[in-house]
Amino acid sequence: MYSIKSKQIRPSRSALKTDNKFGIHDIRMYQAIDIADELTLMNQSLLLLITPVELFNFAFLSNEKKVLAPNITTMLEFYDRTVALFATQILRQRTDKMRASIIIHLFSVVQHLYIKNHDIHSIRIILATFDHPSIFRLRDTWRIFRIQKPKFYTALKYLWNVLSQENNWEDYHLWLEQKFITDCLNKKQPMLLFIGYLLSKMIIDHYHYYTISSHSKTSTLSRVHMTLIDYIKSSPKNYQ
């Protein structure tokens, strides 16, 4: 069982007056850095449980994935549940100002995930929350966010552009492999990559292996030689 063990933030009287009393499950009661650390620890623990047998014949894509690839399925389900949890945190607020304060707090978590933890997987969870139709359409809420935190808004637009689905995620793969992974490896920093990227790379590399003639342009076909299992085995334990 996982739980946030950080010190709770006691809101000021003025905050209580304008934003109402924090609920017992309100994430603003916890410091952003502690939420980031908890997310990273939980997702790393789930990743390290994945075994080689779950990858055979792409079992994680079959109708029996819960039986054949239970740990991959659990990690993906946790991803979806966390997105729903964060979206609920935003939508349960009564005013646009209160909803914007949750988004600001969540983006503070993103900052720590990127700068301190180098955790792309957990960042993707929060960005998926912001992309949720029920959240994305909150125009007045996003206007308040943009006005109150213009630097946050600029950074969020950058991440959204990097993670765009255009060109079959080509820009995202280039950024991830040529900048993020390279920087982390050069600085010998631990990193947690998005599980979807790792699985899709396995499929792409498998396709290239069986469709491209041997020894032809191999240098351009694999910018990063890293399978999911190799990555898991080499995953640093520095987060603990």
Rank of each mutant, 00 (worst) to 15 (best):
A59K: 11
I144K: 08
S108E: 10
E38A: 11
T51N: 13
L138I: 01
I35V: 08
F60E: 09
S108H: 11
I104P: 02
R124G: 14
K97H: 11
I104G: 04
S62V: 01
L48F: 09
R92E: 10
I126S: 01
M42F: 13
D96N: 14
H112S: 11
T141W: 00
H112F: 08
R99S: 09
Y79S: 15
F130S: 00
N71W: 06
L76N: 09
H121M: 10
F56H: 14
L127M: 15
V53S: 14
F60M: 05
L138K: 00
L91N: 06
S134C: 12
F107V: 05
T82Q: 12
L68A: 13
H118E: 13
R92Q: 15
V83G: 05
L76Y: 03
S108K: 15
Q111Y: 07
L68K: 15
L39G: 03
K97P: 02
E77L: 10
A100R: 00
D131R: 13
H132R: 07
N71T: 11
Y114D: 14
I115Q: 10
E54V: 08
A69M: 08
A69Q: 08
T88V: 06
L48A: 13
D37H: 11
S62L: 06
H112W: 05
K116E: 08
K66E: 12
A128H: 14
K116S: 08
I104L: 13
L85T: 09
N43V: 04
D96L: 05
R124Y: 14
A100V: 00
P70N: 05
D119S: 08
K116D: 09
M75S: 08
D140P: 03
H112I: 07
A128M: 06
A84E: 08
L113Q: 04
F86C: 03
I72M: 06
A36W: 03
S108G: 10
H112A: 10
M75P: 05
F130L: 00
L55V: 14
I120W: 15
L47K: 02
L76I: 10
L46G: 02
R137P: 00
V67Q: 14
T82S: 12
F136G: 01
K116G: 02
F86V: 00
T129C: 13
F86S: 01
V109R: 03
L39V: 06
L138N: 05
F60A: 04
R81I: 10
T88M: 07
I35W: 01
N63E: 14
I50N: 04
L46S: 10
A100Y: 02
E54A: 05
I126D: 00
N71C: 11
E77S: 08
A59S: 14
T141A: 02
P70K: 07
A100T: 01
